[in-house]
Design a protein around this nucleic acid. Structure first.
Lengths: 137, 137
DNA sequence: TGTATTTCCTACTAAATCTATAGGATAATA
DNA sequence: TATTATCCTATAGATTTAGTAGGAAATACA
């Protein structure tokens, strides 16, 4: 299941992407418009800023704004920052690889191959979708 | 992330599928061989039996055994029983549909389309993979 | 300079979910 | 009747997720 964090983050990003101007938008406005707890959204936008998706400005007239063109933001990047690994098991993750603690050998693991296929199928979708595609509709 | 429940369930199923005979195998043997807590595995095998994947026999010489040919068990069925919905949000789930509580309208939801694509990509993999494929290597 | 505004940041709490474990009931075998 | 192994419910512990609290820091503007 998609976490609320990711869901809200995506909604906030598309909200910002939809606007023509890149003027800062306040958290409160996004939260209200998208039906999200303001404090929770605050922490989400913060991680999006720290990971290079958003810029921010403090004080009156401040807020958050997109740093890049929506076309240049692939879903792979967003998902990895908000949701974590795209793979369902760490041992097939490209960006978060870890050995599975309960599995002695990847070569003989019965589900390894399936997990690779699932990962690749998801990557295919995420790589071919940008933030711009989410608002194209 | 794939839950341990699903992972263990899949490993148990492939363990049973690998054997030529369909004689009952004890939980203890599967648990030891696959490195799984016996009590936890017990509850997993129980749900697999209740959902028509396994048969069981009590008493001496008892245990669990596959009820169908591995070729006839698609991953879609196993995943839905062990892991739950294949979709990442309830509003695009084929078998577990629910309206998202925070989203007023699916038609205007910015991530709906993406979630459909992701669901379909995963379905494609799971529908084209059977339990037999997991042991084919 | 001072005040209002808005993000920044850490820590914490509450709720939900996942991962088991306990302990006995039930059924089959010999 | 003794032994074996699954059946079943309930519960405990651990982890993750979701959300909250409260103030610090920076900016705009009068």
């Amino acid at each position: 299941m998609l976490s609320k964090k990711t869901k809200y983050g995506l909604k906030a990003l598309t909200f910002l992407a939809k606007r023509e101007s890149r003027e800062p938008i306040q958290i409160a406005e996004i939260a209200e418009s998208e039906n999200i707890s303001q404090k929770f959204l605050e922490s989400i936008l913060l991680t999006l800023r720290r990971n290079g998706f958003l810029g921010s400005k403090k004080g009156k007239g401040g807020g958050y704004y997109l740093i890049k063109d929506p076309e240049d933001i692939p879903m792979t990047a967003i998902m990895r920052v908000l949701e974590g690994p795209i793979a369902m098991v760490p041992c097939v993750s490209l960006n978060f690889y870890e050995k599975c603690d309960d599995c002695p050998d990847e070569n003989t693991c019965s589900i390894f191959g399936l997990m690779v296929k699932v990962r690749d199928a998801n990557l295919e979708v995420y790589r071919n979708t940008s933030l711009a595609d989410l608002i194209a509709k």
